[in-house]
C-alpha cells in the first residue's frame, strides 16, 4: 500500500506538468485583451503596441509559458490582467473563501437531503414516494440554474417584502454595505441570508443527482443474496437496511463524494454570476475571456491538483472501506 501511494504521488508530477502545458496552450488561444482599446479615443495605436509588449503578448505562446513557468518556480504566479495592480495569487485568494463557503454549505445540504431521500426511494421502490422523489430529482437536475435563480429572486426579493419594505431576501451579493463594523453575530446572520437562495438553487440541482446515485446503489445492494439471508434469519428490517445494505451501498457513494470535493473550489460560474457572488467560477471564466492567463492558471492548477489528490484519496478510501480491494 505504501509503495502504491508513493508511486501514485510521483506519477502526479508529470501529470500536473502536462495539465499546466495543455491548459496554458488552450488559454493562449484567447487573443490579447488590448485590441479593443482602439475604441477609446484617448488611446493611440502606439499605446496598444507598448502594452502588448509589456505584457508579453508579442511572444509565441511557448515562450510566454517558459517566462511564466520561470516565475512559478520562484513562487511568483504573475500579475493579474483582469485586475491590474494585483497579483494573480491575491485575486484568487479573495475569491476562494467566498466560493468555499457557498459550495461547502451547498455540498453538505445536498448530501444531507439527497442521500436520505435516495435511501427512502430505494426501499420504497415503485411507491408514490419513489415516484415523487424521482420526478423532483429530475426536475432539479434539468432546471437551468440561471432561470431558477432569477425566478427565486423575483419571488423572494421583489414580490415578498419585509414589513420595513425591504426585500425578504437580498437579491444577490454576499454582504450588506454598512455592516462592516457590526458584531460577529449580526455579520454572521447577514451573510447567511445572502446564502439562502444560491444554496437552494445549487442544492436543488445536486440533490437530485445524489438521490439518484444513492437510490441505484441501494437498489443494487438490497437485491443481493446476503440481504435476503439476513431477512430470512429474522434480522429486524431496520438493521437489515442500516447494517447490511447501507454500509455496502455507501462504498461507491463515498468514492463519488471524494471525487466531488474539488468542485467546492471550482465554484459555479452561472449561479455566482446570477447571484453576484465574487467567487472562483465567475472569476476563472472572466479571467479566461480577458486573457488573464496568470489568474486562470492559478485557479485551474488549484482545481487540477485537488482533482488529482482527491482521486488518490478516493482510491485509498475505497481500499479502506472495501476489504476486497488490495493495492500492491
Amino acid at each position: 500500500m505504501r509503495d502504491y501511494v508513493i508511486r501514485r504521488i510521483l506519477g502526479m508530477i508529470p501529470l500536473i506538468l502536462i495539465v499546466m502545458i495543455v491548459s496554458f496552450a488552450i488559454f493562449s488561444m484567447v487573443p490579447n485583451p488590448f485590441a479593443a482599446l482602439i475604441e477609446n479615443p484617448r488611446i493611440k495605436r502606439s499605446d496598444i503596441d507598448r502594452l502588448i509588449k509589456a505584457w508579453g503578448f508579442d511572444l509565441p505562446w511557448y515562450m510566454r509559458f517558459f517566462r511564466w513557468f520561470g516565475g512559478v518556480i520562484r513562487g511568483d504566479w504573475g500579475p493579474s490582467l483582469l485586475y491590474p495592480g494585483s497579483s494573480a495569487r491575491d485575486v484568487i485568494a479573495l475569491a476562494l473563501p467566498v466560493t468555499v463557503r457557498l459550495m461547502g454549505i451547498e455540498f453538505l445540504v445536498a448530501l444531507a437531503i439527497g442521500l436520505p431521500i435516495g435511501i427512502l426511494s430505494a426501499i420504497k421502490q415503485y411507491s408514490m414516494t419513489d415516484y415523487v422523489v424521482t420526478v423532483v430529482s429530475f426536475m432539479g437536475m434539468s432546471m437551468p440554474t440561471f432561470w431558477f435563480g432569477l425566478l427565486l429572486m423575483m419571488l423572494f426579493s421583489v414580490v415578498l417584502k419585509r414589513p420595513s419594505g425591504m426585500p425578504l431576501l437580498p437579491p444577490g451579493g454576499i454582504l450588506t454595505p454598512g455592516l462592516e463594523e457590526a458584531s460577529f453575530w449580526v455579520k454572521f446572520l447577514d451573510r447567511a441570508q445572502y446564502l439562502v437562495m444560491p444554496v437552494i438553487v445549487l442544492a436543488f440541482s445536486s440533490i437530485g443527482s445524489w438521490a439518484r446515485y444513492m437510490r441505484s446503489s441501494m437498489l443494487e445492494v438490497i437485491r443481493q443474496d446476503y440481504i435476503r439471508t439476513a431477512r430470512a434469519k429474522g434480522v429486524p428490517e431496520r438493521s437489515v437496511i442500516n447494517k447490511h445494505a447501507l454500509r455496502n451501498a455507501m462504498i461507491p457513494i463515498v468514492t463519488l463524494i471524494a471525487l466531488s470535493v474539488p468542485a467546492i473550489v471550482g465554484g459555479a460560474s452561472i449561479t455566482e454570476t446570477i447571484f453576484n457572488i465574487p467567487g472562483m467560477g465567475k472569476l476563472i471564466i472572466a479571467a479566461e475571456t480577458k486573457a488573464d492567463y496568470p489568474t486562470a492558471m492559478v485557479g485551474l492548477m488549484l482545481i487540477s491538483i485537488l482533482v488529482i489528490v482527491f482521486n488518490l484519496l478516493a482510491d485509498i478510501v475505497y481500499a479502506w472501506i472495501d476489504p476486497r480491494i488490495k493495492y500492491s
Partner: peptide
C-alpha cells in the same frame, strides 16, 4: 455606496426592489 452587479437581469431585479 457604489454596488457592482455584473448580470443585467440581476441588476434589473435589484433595481425593482428599490434599493
Amino acid at each position: 455606496t457604489e454596488r457592482f452587479i455584473v448580470d443585467t437581469n440581476t441588476l434589473l431585479i435589484n433595481m425593482l426592489t428599490g434599493t
